[in-house]
Design a protein around this nucleic acid. Structure first.
Lengths: 215, 215
DNA sequence: CTCCCGAAATCTACGCCGTAGGTTTCCGGC
DNA sequence: GCCGGAAACCTACGGCGTAGATTTCGGGAG
């Protein structure tokens, strides 16, 4: 803990703080995280952080923006076709979640207004519009897809890796009977299958022409 | 703050504590919530709560169980047909979320092993099996549906009620162009439409016979 | 070259929080 | 009438977020 004397620069800035915070949460978990621990990690006084970031809430916002930026940096360009674009987004988003499982809940809980998030949505909408899908389906697609992605990934990350929770077969015969089919709980194969299910739902509504639901 | 003398009974039990905690969070918000504030509300010493509930994490578990129990108490019996059952679950779950918006994040974040939650899933699975849907689709349905429900409701509840977040039209033309169609952001109509989209996806997979995705 | 000012970082302090450990009081069963 | 265990309380500790005042330094104006 070598503190410098007051006034000397520690080279802090918003991005550097956010990246250090992400690394700390990845290592120690979200509930152990705090401004003081982060300051200790940066070898800095806790209050120094407040000169770059307004409060803890803003710090958490900066962290979620940082992981989104990291994701888009590695991503390259999306493929052609609206369904392929959606799958491409979904896969990269899943990879982000597995790379920073402790940070991911922040993305879900906080409203996403970072440019990098809006850009991804804009690409999806653009691909769907050029494919000629009904406007109503296009407008609903982001909420439908990211609703699922957020809820699903949150659930899978919270459980211990690789195993679905087990239940009493006598009390819940239906649940128990399908349990063997959940052997791939949390795998990429399951993820792709469920994403395709959601996309199939959008496709089915597009096929009605008006974009209204079937029933 | 009329404390009783040591030893006298305050009539505490797990359910009563959980219901008081839910009421407190509904009123003051989740981040203002704490064991000490809850104790003050119950006119009780903070440590008394620990004789009934092991720690703060267990307290949060008890709260999410309490709201689920409340939901099922008002629910009645599910209708016939798997899609109707799914919609019935979805609507009651949404009502729960809007009745306890500050508590809802707890449901999403924590693994659901309460009997009342498992019962609802078991009913859905039973309805799908008797409808003759492929096992694979049946097995995937809970994760698909609740993934969407959790993610969607979390997003809608976090935004301010009634309005979708607005963006710069020049920077994100696609997003801006569909913005007018999101006038019903957060309404029951939008919710029903998106739930039907997800159900349509499950139905589409069932129609292939094997339950495999289309593409 | 000197002075000064604003930005960066630090120091101090306050009121919360979760909870471990020990103590007091009451009540039902013998 | 006594006693053991359950229920509640009291004290204390370490940690938290952050408001407000203070110190220090780099760099531009004269």
């Amino acid at each position: 803990m070598a503190r410098r004397t007051q006034g000397t620069s520690a080279g802090l800035d918003r991005g550097k703080i956010a990246r250090a915070a992400v690394a700390l949460v990845d290592r120690d978990g979200l509930d152990r995280f705090g401004v003081r621990r982060l300051a200790q990690e940066l070898e800095v006084d806790p209050m120094s952080i407040y000169h770059h970031i307004k409060g803890k809430a803003a710090l958490l916002d900066a962290m979620s923006e940082a992981v989104l930026v990291e994701m888009m940096a590695d991503a390259g360009d999306p493929p052609a076709g609206w369904a392929e674009t959606a799958r491409w987004i979904a896969r990269h988003y899943r990879e982000l979640a597995y790379r920073h499982p402790e940070v991911f809940p922040l993305l879900v809980t906080r409203a996403q207004t970072a440019p990098v998030a809006l850009t991804a949505l804009d690409r999806l909408i653009g691909a769907m519009r050029t494919a000629g899908l009904p406007d109503r389906v296009v407008a609903d697609a982001p909420m439908t897809l990211f609703g699922f992605l957020n809820g699903y990934l949150l659930a899978v990350l919270n459980g211990q890796p690789g195993t679905a929770p087990s239940v009493d077969p006598a009390a819940y015969p239906g649940l128990a009977s399908v349990a063997p089919l959940q052997h791939d709980y949390g795998t990429a194969a399951e993820f792709d299958r469920l994403v395709d299910t959601v996309l199939a739902g959008l496709d089915a509504r597009a096929a009605t022409g008006t974009g209204d639901p079937l029933t």
